[in-house]
Design a protein around this nucleic acid. Sequence first.
DNA 1: TTTACCGTACATCAGCACAG
DNA 2: CTGTGCTGATGTACGGTAAA
Length: 403
Amino acid sequence: MSLVAPTREDALAAAQSQPIVQVGKKWRCTDGDESSGNSEDDSDEDVYRSCGRAFARLGDPGFVKIFQIVEQAINMIPEDSEDENDRELTERETRMAESWAVLTKIIPGFKALMFDPANATRRLWRRKLCKSINAGVCDARSDDTAGLKFKILNWLLEDITVKLLPPIPNDEEIKSLRGWNHPVTARLLTPLDYLADDNTYASVKAGRVKVTAEMWPRFLYAEGREYKPDDEESGLFMGHLMIRATKHIFMGPSSALKGPGYCRGTHCNARRINMNVITPRALAYVAVQVRFAISDAEKWATVDRQFSLAKFYWNVVAFFDDGEGQDVLDFYNHELFGETRQLQGLSDDLSDDPDSNRPSASERMKAQRAQKRARLAAPTTPAAPTGMAAPSTAAPVPGMSVA
DNA sequence: TTTACCGTACATCAGCACAG
DNA sequence: CTGTGCTGATGTACGGTAAA
């Protein structure tokens, strides 16, 4: 393992030819020697911790432990097997297999290392290594949570010149003014098919109304979008909070309110993790971060009241299964990377063929998509969705950019 | 022991002044 | 006008600490 020059050009050039990860302020080039496992364990831990940071944003923010992902991969997918889909995987196993695919892309040589027969019995060693990755996952998630915690208050309203009423102080540590306790955040949390009024908020707080991850919250949708039972898809993921938070996390906090492609400096997260296109999991990560940030939950937890962040995450990921939602990804790619982005990196479709047990949100969406296709296939084309900036299937919607 | 949070160190860039 | 160097701003990684 050797150091390479830390300049942007060198790093990017190196990235074209060989795997490279940034460890702290240093750039490390992994040349395969790491698999020998005979050198500095501490620096290896740093490498894995750093990779864990990338994995939080691209793979899984900690809903499944790395060790489980690795053990499943080792136990279920023989290294030399061409056919990895011999037996049907459960939904959970499928997601873990996808996570494994992301992990092996982020950490060059990781797959070979794990499948090396010499390491087959080193379970404790694997556990330690996975712990390092896990630590990185927690670091990144925690950093993003902390970063969004106050910044997001400035973007709650689509029009940032309008004052938030009642105000939430920018230095208010306690989040009790958010969530269902504030009309603006409560409205953003309210499922689209629920009336966003005080009555609903009170009912949710009292537990009379359950808001679960099967319901798409309003913040996912473009402002002003109204509920249509037969079309929950148009305008989905076009919410201003989603767009701003995605930019905040991947292009840096100063990019949140800027136009497409803006990135101050060269060391934004997207570049650090070599991300050139948005992925469904990256978008799902943003969604759970936003959900947590506007809730009144003080500590990161996978469940807030009846709302499971984990389930929400996987529902968002499932939305993009089978290559669906490409128009949404195109839109975000344009917002993040502008016109000059390069199509490379971790953009590969990591979703396997999903089978039966889809969450209900996804099932609804699929049914609606089928209906929509049927309508489009009909001889007379119906009118386009009214008003809202529902992206067409043809092209991104540059005009959707927030000011 | 694990996790979340916070403060600090470090890398990088943009803007500016200045010399040639 | 162009190149160079300095400085402040920005953003992330990481170590330390407290709490669960």
